[in-house]
Design a binder for these strands. Structure first.
Lengths: 215, 215
DNA sequence: CGCGATTTTGACGGCACTCAAGCGCCGTGG
DNA sequence: CCACGGCGCTTGAGTGCCGTCAAAATCGCG
């Protein structure tokens, strides 16, 4: 998540875009010079395709998140980014951003930190996907969402998940049925209440303790 | 992997280190300013610990690889790096590297590309851990090693794996027994021959076709 | 209101984990 | 030199978690 100051600097040379639900953007065969985008409103998902039909969610992004980092390696996007809701975002050509980085040490530092956090986040996902069981994965997913909503001044105990069970399952390496069962189990243990996509965390400590054993 | 030119620039202000097998370095509670390291010789593994006993391998690194990227986000290492063999590496304080980046546009670009490749690699691991079955994971592991050896001018069909089955399994989200069984199965299908840690890929196409269905 | 998409729940099976035994290699010490 | 023990690897048997298949309920939207 970028700070307000970074956002302002970043948006000096911006290109605005609107994305509508389920409309694809930032294709793998994207513009020869990749661009980075900050989300202004709405949720988006980022997926990587293996070219054989299977797609893996690599992340859900919310307002303030920076997306398109996957394009840095080659200048072309490896992932597709798709809106979960009507969304708006602003982008900047990567070359411009590198120029700004050379001029502004603070921005450079923050940009590197953002890249580093993405790497750290991905390593956490590897831990999750490699070592956790279904219920633990879902608990971590909820706690992650909760923390990110809290960072944005929203409720950390009640929120709406804009993605489908299918998308959650893909992200967590589970089937949609297993995700649904895990939600039901957590609700049965009085840790959460869940009504379709509306979640309330009723026992934050209990949810966190689920992860104590593994991660 | 860094180019020879980058290596030279990078090593202008270096700090040399030697690591002995199974001796830990770059602890989580590392120096307040993180440092990045390039491997000169030997293999190392990088692991992330969840604080509850479980450890997840995040990568195996070989000569030329840049490690310590996880420290960028916070200035402290999130991971531990441990030598699989006697190894040597050279490091540079991250602050120095940022200074060089501002002075040298090419270095900056390559540094960003390295970060981006790490992110891309991690996304590939998420795909592997989230969607592949045991045999596919092991096949991808072998092909990945093969490609990286080839990049360094070594044989892509015969090589030695310096890590244990346990470490491979941890990396791939499998148990050591499952890894062993997968190797045996691949050998039974005449795709590889394997003698302890010595591998020979006898049917590269067949191995790759294993992944066609999923990734 | 009606239809498709999404979600929940159940039954069943398979793949990978757990537990266990045995083998080979190697370093150590008698 | 050889016995011994530890470690890593392989293989087998049984179990359990989660994927698959299926059906019903509910939601969202025109």
């Amino acid at each position: 998540m970028l700070s307000a100051g970074d956002m302002r600097r970043f948006c000096d040379r911006i290109e605005h875009r609107r994305m509508r639900k389920n409309r694809e953007h930032l294709h793998r065969a994207g513009a020869a010079l990749g661009a980075l985008y900050v989300i202004n409103s709405g949720f988006v998902k980022t997926i990587i395709s293996d070219g054989n039909g299977h797609e893996q969610m690599t992340g859900f992004s919310m307002p303030g998140d920076l997306i398109g980092l996957d394009a840095i390696a080659t200048g072309k996007h490896q992932c597709s980014t798709i809106a979960l809701e009507d969304s708006s975002l602003c982008g900047m050509a990567f070359a411009d951003l590198e120029q700004l980085n050379r001029e502004d040490q603070t921005l450079q530092r923050h940009f590197h930190q953002t890249l580093g956090m993405e790497i750290t986040r991905d390593h956490g996902m590897m831990l999750l996907l490699g070592a956790m069981r279904a219920e633990e994965r879902v608990a971590m997913f909820l706690l992650n969402l909760s923390r990110r909503f809290a960072l944005r001044g929203l409720s950390e105990t009640r929120f709406r998940m804009p993605m489908t069970r299918q998308e959650i399952g893909n992200y967590l390496g589970l089937t949609l049925e297993t995700v649904s069962r895990a939600f039901s189990r957590l609700a049965g243990e009085r840790l959460i209440t869940i009504d379709n996509r509306e979640v309330e965390i009723r026992n934050m400590e209990g949810l966190q303790q689920l992860l104590q054993s593994r991660g």
